[in-house]
Design a binder for these strands. Structure first.
Length: 506
RNA sequence: GCCGCAUUCGUCUAGAGGCCCAGGACACCGCCCUCUCAAGGCGGAGAUCAUCGGUUCGAAUCCGAUAUGCGGUACCA
């Protein structure tokens, strides 16, 4: 298992359906396909399966493409997007543009009697199913239309019935060697009878189009979720009927909700875009997703996309499902944020800060626009304190809000009373005024404040906490002296004054 | 119901017959560092390897059964 058995260059794909935003599970499947292709010098193809016209939207399509691109999973072949032309010799890569091909194949199967028209109504099928259920049988198509004469068909047509096309499943056992699961055998009697491959409105169904396209696009490896394992025999039968080479299959373990059911929107956050919006970085997400169901050694934890491209293989993919653990994702995310260059961090964090400031602006507060220089100066203060990029606001917004309103109750440190706090802030103000604007640096600010605390017999921590709240409005902030330095001399004094007034007034 | 797949600390995992009375990471607890919050360092607790039976001198690792969970069973993908 694991090592590719075919000698032809590897071709694998991700084939998302634009019936919803990019799902975290789809992203992982895409990642594994991408890594497998990279590792073995193969080709990674993107194909859009948009035959469910009722549920597919261009917005979802865009979301999926954006998400994959954001993760860095660039495809070698795929449809045209955003004005860029389609790439690859096997196009079109959008199924709705491949309809003639499907129709042609359906005709061929019909002509070879490998498929047939079925005129059964939904009601008839439903009652079949009910009867089978009552008899404790597996639901299956009974084959009522499997051998209609031309006359019978004319009758149904005359009655206005429009047929579906069914593929003959036949009898026997279908076996295959899954690259992850090993040998799998399924009796065709468990497949539900002859399979509908074309709807009565003429549109092709998923099981039909995937196989046609995987064959036509010369896929060598089908790496997909375990939920397709039971469907694989249908696909194999179809490949054979088409006279195509059956590719290798690798069925990935499912990503699970906390209760171990298949990860769903209902119980988990599944949309990739939500994770992006919450400030997760691509490096963290890629790393986390790669380790969900795969482990190179189980001891190393941090891997970049490039590193993974050199390490990944199917033989270390797990068989059991994996519960999605957001805490672990956040930890990995923090690890990668800490590894970003200052410039890179600034660029990534800027939109999140901007969004936060927009909220303050909307609330009628005066906001100072952060410049890149401002942000660069903040990097050392925030880099190791960001679990996600979105946390930048709570760490730094006090710098950009002009008239900071501090909750008076917060101003008094736990061990102090209001009077002591007022004295403390007043003394601190004088001390800092003496430091002066020219010497306004963290190393210059700290000693005199410590001396002050010592002289008055205060615990330094209490004094510092009072100052911290006075200038930031928060009890948890980056280190105080660096914060004062960044805030600047005049604003520091102004905020201390404002805090003293608030205390005196209250 | 029927068919299939899975099962190592709460979670992600290492482990491919003796190195394992099971190792790492997240989370949790404690200590150190410390102006708060983080980050970091150190330590702790946490898994009778689902259960039962078999093979073997020896099993988490091989075989079988059972249980539990999950997936599939559409004119969804």
């Amino acid at each position: 298992m694991g090592e590719p058995r075919v000698t032809a260059p590897i071709r694998c794909r991700i084939a998302p359906s634009p019936t919803g935003p990019l799902h975290i599970g789809t992203a992982r499947t895409a990642l594994y396909n991408y890594l497998f292709a990279r590792r073995h010098g193969g080709t990674f193809v993107l194909r859009l399966e948009d035959t469910d016209a009722a549920r597919s939207t261009v917005a979802h399509e865009q979301d999926i493409l954006d998400g994959l691109h954001w993760l860095g999973l660039d495809w070698d072949e795929g449809p045209e997007v955003g004005g860029l032309p389609a790439r690859g010799p096997y196009g079109p890569y959008r199924q709705m543009e491949r309809l003639p091909l499907y129709a042609e194949v359906a005709e061929r199967l019909l002509a070879q009697d490998k498929a047939y028209y079925c005129y059964c109504t939904p009601e008839e099928l439903a009652s079949d199913r009910a009867a089978q259920e009552a008899a404790h049988q597996a639901p299956h198509y009974v084959g009522r239309c499997a051998h209609l004469t031309a006359a019978q068909r004319r009758d149904w047509e005359a009655q206005g019935r429009t047929p579906v096309i069914r593929f003959r499943i036949g009898q026997g056992v279908v076996a295959f060697d899954d690259l992850i699961r090993g040998h799998v055998e399924i009796d065709t009697s468990a497949l539900g009878g002859d399979l509908v491959i074309v709807r009565s409105d003429g549109s092709p169904l998923y099981h039909f189009t995937v196989v046609i396209d995987d064959a036509a696009m010369a896929m060598t490896h089908i790496i997909r979720g375990e939920d397709h394992l039971s469907n694989t025999p249908k696909h194999i039968l179809l490949f054979r009927a088409l006279g195509a080479t059956v590719p290798e299959f690798a069925h990935l373990p499912l990503i699970l909700n906390a209760d171990r059911s298949k990860m769903s929107k209902r119980k988990s956050q599944t949309a990739m875009s939500d994770y992006i919006a919450q400030g997760f970085v691509r490096e963290g997400l890629v790393n986390y997703l790669a380790l969900l169901g795969w482990a190179s050694t189980g001891t190393d934890e941090l891997f970049s996309l490039d590193e993974l491209s050199g390490l990944f293989d199917l033989d270390r993919v797990h068989q059991g499902g994996a519960v999605f653990d957001r805490e672990r994702l956040e930890w990995l995310n923090g690890q990668w944020i800490r590894r970003l260059s200052p410039q890179e961090l600034v660029e990534r964090v800027a939109p999140f800060l901007e969004a936060d400031l927009a909220i303050h602006r909307a609330a009628g507060r005066m906001v100072i626009e952060p410049t890149e220089t401002d942000l660069l100066a903040l990097v050392p203060l925030i880099q190791e304190r960001l679990p996600t990029l979105a946390a930048v606001g709570e760490l730094t917004d006090f710098l950009f809000i002009q008239d900071l309103v501090v909750e008076p109750g917060l101003l008094v440190p736990k061990r102090w009373d209001a009077a002591t706090t007022l004295t403390g802030l007043t003394e601190a103000r004088h001390t800092l005024a003496r430091v002066g604007e020219v010497a306004w640096e963290a190393e210059e600010i700290e000693p005199p404040l410590r001396t002050l605390a010592e002289e008055r017999g205060w615990k330094a921590g209490d004094l510092f906490m009072a100052i911290r709240v006075a200038i930031t409005g928060r009890t948890a902030t980056p280190p105080l002296f660096d914060t004062l330095a960044v805030l600047g001399f005049p604003r520091t004094l102004a905020r201390l004054d404002a805090a003293r007034e608030a205390l005196a007034g209250g």
